[in-house]
Design a protein around this nucleic acid. Structure first.
Lengths: 347, 347
DNA sequence: ATGAAAGCGCTAACAG
DNA sequence: CTGTTAGCGCTTTCAT
């Protein structure tokens, strides 16, 4: 560490000619409480400013058992869906005086597990995690240690834990219903990572919408295995070569849609004339795609904001040894944003 | 903090029946160095695992004056350009055993300044900062305190500091030259935030390309004031209503381009038939826009990767009290990705 | 109205 | 081969 910044509370105390105790009290706004003279207070404050003294948060953390730090684990921060969430979490955390340690799990459960350990070692006051989502065994211990925790985007039915998610089921149901209302009958679904709640609910919404409208379910029209672009490309490539070709694709993520568009263009087909499409996740560019994309928008800003607020509540309870706050299960509604990627077929 | 996780090195030592020193040594892989018996070593290791002991990094940080933590300040983490950089930094940092504290400055110099203070208080081992970029006065002290620092994307000529940036000048020059080669003569430029190096160099590249090809410079064709979407919309709106209308727009950011596209569509015009466009920043969706966008691609993955490596070098020098490593100025080439948004005009 | 001293959990001299 | 002890910078109890 830079030795020129060797300023400690001691050096401030020396300069003013008081004890470290007094400096600490003043700097923590407890001058009133300890009835420190106005004069002393002012001198301490001024000297600290002059010296450019910055309190050592590492030492404070050790002493206080509170680091004013939260951990954030995200599967892929370069995905705009997640980075928007991260942004809102960081901004709200900072407002509350908290720093955010970021960990990108790269959609890898093992890395997620390591991050969890790492962040515990760093004594974060709480954790917001968007889990890879296939298993939850590694998350349970965190819960048992009473470390404040909020899960976002994906959740685990078996885990008794506060979460903030979108209404994926209804979002998917609405989307597929919209396709059906436009007289589509052969509707494919490119799914994301299997055994995640997000995927499960979106696919279930798809199934149920078909069922509700009395359409048969063809399992071979459900294809795919990750939320990435490549998976979208591969899935669409396969679907487009089926006979009869599906008249519409329901895509379960923004990245999948991009990949699928690539495949569709490559096959010389056009949206929505040859094939209709509807995609989860609204994006700033959705309006400007070759065919403006009809999407299911999630409240990304709100997810981050709410997640942090909920975490903050838990942290404060924890610190005050209060009764544990209740477990919150927040489900945010989605919204169908209709553009031009769905064609109304003739009956 | 969760008291059930009250495990300290002491508790491990007690259980094994050795001193904390021994446990510390074993856990830090110094068993060899201190010639600790294989048997003791194994027992310590096993007991620690059994107890689920996680070393307290806050205490280690205080003692070692090395926190294995870096600070990352970014103007807008939700912008895919920055989030890609952040991702690469985090991934490489973690590989090196470093955690990343993220700070979103929201393109606000004041917040950037506060983040700087905050991160110093947290005793980060080093700092990677993508500055808002108009002024550098608040960054100088960091340099003087010998805190390892790497600046990315934007830089300050007056600051003697390692940086990693794109060759913005040449990128812009190439882009505008390409327009000129396609016989465009009235080329507008929607610029970003004034008084940032990025903007300055991109605009300079624009000017010089015109000059080099013997075209007159019309200052009123340079418009705009931020890198955001809204600025692109406003800028394009104004430009489109000029007579004669420019035949091409050079847009200095991905977000500006999106906004500009909005304005162009709204005016009922099409790219490139009515107006050509070329944009800084290649994006996963660039291929799938209404008109596939011709872009100037930056090496985003490399920026993050190189920035961390450079920071790591500085940190290691600092720790070993070596001579200061030399200041590196890395300029990465850009690449023109030709798609369909530029029309070849008749001579 | 202020200070002395203990201790948060860890590591590194120094000692044997 | 292992342990004792001091101390990183801070806050807080207890004392005055």
């Amino acid at each position: 560490m830079a030795q020129s910044n060797a300023e400690t509370i001691q050096s401030v105390a020396d300069k003013v000619g008081v004890s470290t105790t007094t400096v600490s009290r003043v700097l923590n706004g407890k001058a009133e409480t300890y009835r420190i003279s106005k004069r002393t207070e002012e001198r301490v404050l001024q000297t600290a400013t002059e010296m450019g003294y910055i309190p050592n948060q590492v030492a404070r953390g050790l002493r206080n058992k509170r680091t004013n730090t939260i951990g954030l684990i995200i599967p892929d921060i370069s995905n705009p869906f997640f980075s928007t969430i991260a942004r809102n979490i960081e901004i709200n955390a900072r407002k509350a005086g908290c720093s955010t340690i970021l960990s990108d799990s790269q959609e890898d459960t093992q890395l997620e597990k390591e991050s969890l350990r790492l962040l515990q070692g760093r004594k974060v006051d709480g954790l917001i995690i968007c889990p890879v989502g296939e298993i939850s065994a590694h998350i349970e211990p965190v819960l048992h240690k009473n470390i404040p925790l909020v899960i976002i985007d994906r959740y685990f039915p078996e885990l008794d834990c506060t979460y903030v998610i979108s209404d994926n089921y209804k979002g998917a149901f609405d989307a597929v219903s919209y396709l059906i209302e436009n007289n589509h009958r052969t509707i494919a679904c490119i799914q994301g990572r299997a055994r995640t709640s997000v995927n499960h609910e979106r696919v279930q919404g798809y199934r149920d919408a078909l069922k509700k409208h009395g359409l048969p379910l063809d399992e071979s029209l459900i294809i795919g295995e990750s939320f990435g672009k490549k998976n979208g490309y591969i899935g669409a490539k396969i679907l487009l070569n089926r006979t009869p070709r599906p008249t519409a694709i329901f895509s379960t993520s923004n990245l999948i849609s991009l990949g699928a568009m690539g495949a569709i263009l490559e096959e010389g087909l056009s949206i929505p004339d040859d094939i209709s499409m509807i995609s989860f996740d609204d994006q700033p560019y959705s309006d400007y795609l070759i065919t403006p994309m009809t999407t299911i928008a999630q409240q990304t800003d709100e997810i981050g904001h709410i997640a942090f607020k909920l975490l903050e509540t838990q942290i404060n309870h924890e610190m005050n040894q209060d009764m544990k706050p209740r477990i919150e299960r927040i489900v945010l509604p989605t919204k169908l944003v209709i553009r031009k990627s769905v064609k109304t077929l003739k009956k």
